[in-house]
Computed example of a mutant assay.
Amino acid sequence: MKTKRKIEVVVISDVHLGSYECHAKQLLTYLNSIQPKKLILNGDIIDIWQFSKRYFPKSHLKVIKKIMDMSASGVEIIYITGNHDEMLRKFSNMTIGNITIVNKLVLNLDGKSGWFFHGDVFDLSIPNTKWIAKFGGYGYNILIHINRFTNWILERLGKEKLSLSRKIKNNTKNSDKYINDYENVISDLAIENNYDYVVCGHIHQPKMEYKENKHGKTLYLNSGDWVEHFTALEYQFKRWKTYVYSEDKLSPFYADEDVKSMEMKDLIAAITIFNPQKKKQTIKP
């Protein structure tokens, strides 16, 4: 049996369970390879915008069960809400066992303060033109299907895979300006509020970079996504690093044996009757 990596804090975001672009198997492999003390789910974990009863495969249920099992085994789970799972915002500050739902989080690690949030509140396209953003999500689904078919052909021709969505995003007019503005607004606010680092997601662009202005500096951290980049943030030995699934020499880890053999109905039942450590539900003031 492989030894799991012990990590103090892990941050993942933009998983989009329940959507076609989600890569649940890779995420499950990663979760099975680590043993964190604290797991921060930084928004858009479940894609409620695109949720359909017709599509929620077994691998997606396995991820949910894995997270619940981690909670039951003592891992602190903090679920920070995003725009695709915004329905959970009405449950903000609710705690069930080791799972807490919040809209934002301030965390002190080794004498340094960090500000955690998903980041959609800094995206002007979300509050005012949500219907455009949702339409874009469905268009992205179509793009993913085309991309998978294209890569299926390329693989059989012995050619390198490509990412159509990334190509389009990289060639979109003003996309670089949008990303830079997003990063700078967040970093400036973190500096203004004296945070040593700021952790977000939302734009599917993993990054770790010091940002500076005339008032000071902060460490900008973006956990990326599990749609294209397959990245996470890890905190251990008093430092942050970006985990990249494709560069993990310890892979593959496989799903837990008990989960691997479970039928769909058994997975649903296990999630439905979940009772973490038999603790009562509490609501934080």
Rank of each mutant, 00 (worst) to 15 (best):
Leu31Thr: 05
Ile132Glu: 15
Val9His: 07
Asp225Asn: 15
Asn213Phe: 03
Cys200Gln: 11
Ser251Arg: 14
Met94Asp: 06
Gly97Asn: 08
Ser13His: 15
Phe117Val: 04
His16Arg: 05
Leu39Thr: 06
Ala72Arg: 04
His145Tyr: 14
Asp225Glu: 13
Glu247Asp: 15
Glu263Met: 12
Tyr210Ala: 01
Ser261Asn: 14
Leu107Pro: 00
Lys161Val: 01
Gly216His: 01
Leu41Val: 12
Arg239Thr: 13
Ile191Gly: 03
Asn151Asp: 03
Asn193Asp: 03
Ser71Gln: 11
Glu86Cys: 02
Trp131His: 15
Arg166Cys: 02
Ser261Trp: 13
Leu107Ala: 01
Asp225Ile: 06
Val244Met: 13
Lys25Ala: 12
Lys279Glu: 14
His84Leu: 10
Thr218Arg: 01
Lys65Glu: 07
Leu154Glu: 00
Ile168Ala: 05
Asp196Ser: 05
Phe122Met: 10
Trp226Leu: 02
Val10His: 08
Thr3Tyr: 14
Arg148Gln: 10
Leu61Gly: 02
Pro127Asp: 06
Cys200Ala: 09
Lys4Asn: 14
Phe149Val: 12
Asp123Glu: 15
Ser113Asn: 05
Glu209Gly: 05
Tyr195Gly: 02
Asp44Phe: 05
Gly136Arg: 14
Met68Thr: 04
Ser175Phe: 14
Trp226Ala: 03
Thr100Ala: 05
His23Tyr: 07
Thr150Val: 09
Ala24Val: 08
Thr150Ile: 10
Ser13Pro: 03
Gly158Cys: 00
Lys134Tyr: 12
Leu28Thr: 03
Pro206Met: 08
Ile77Met: 14
Met68Asp: 01
Leu250Glu: 14
Lys260His: 12
Trp240Thr: 04
Phe122Gly: 01
Ile99Phe: 07
Val75Phe: 08
Thr172Lys: 12
Ile48Lys: 12
Ile168Ser: 01
Ile7Asn: 11
Ile168Pro: 10
Ser163Lys: 07
Arg156Asp: 00
Ser246Pro: 04
Leu88Met: 14
Leu233Thr: 02
Ile7Lys: 10
Asn222Thr: 02
Tyr220Val: 05
Val244Leu: 13
Ile96Thr: 10
Lys66Ala: 15
Thr129Pro: 02
Asp47Met: 09
Ile78Ser: 07
Tyr245Pro: 15
Cys200Asn: 14
His118Pro: 02
Met87Phe: 06
Thr231Ala: 11
Trp131Asp: 15
Ser125Thr: 09
Phe149Asn: 09
Tyr140Cys: 09
Ile168Gln: 01
Tyr243Glu: 06
Ile67Phe: 11
Lys37Ser: 12
Leu219Asp: 02
Tyr140Ala: 10
Lys173Met: 12
Asp256Ser: 10
Lys214Ser: 13
Met70Ser: 03
His229Trp: 10
Phe116Ser: 03
Ser223Lys: 13
Asn171Pro: 04
Met68His: 04
Gly18Lys: 11
Ile153Pro: 01
Ile153Met: 01
Asp266Lys: 09
Ile12Tyr: 05
Glu257Asp: 15
Leu124Asp: 15
Gly18Ala: 14
Glu76Gly: 00
Tyr182Cys: 08
His23Phe: 04
Ala24Glu: 07
Ile126Phe: 13
Asn275Gln: 07
Arg166Val: 03
Ile179Thr: 02
Tyr210Phe: 04
Lys37Val: 04
Val10Gly: 08
Tyr79Gln: 06
Val63Asn: 04
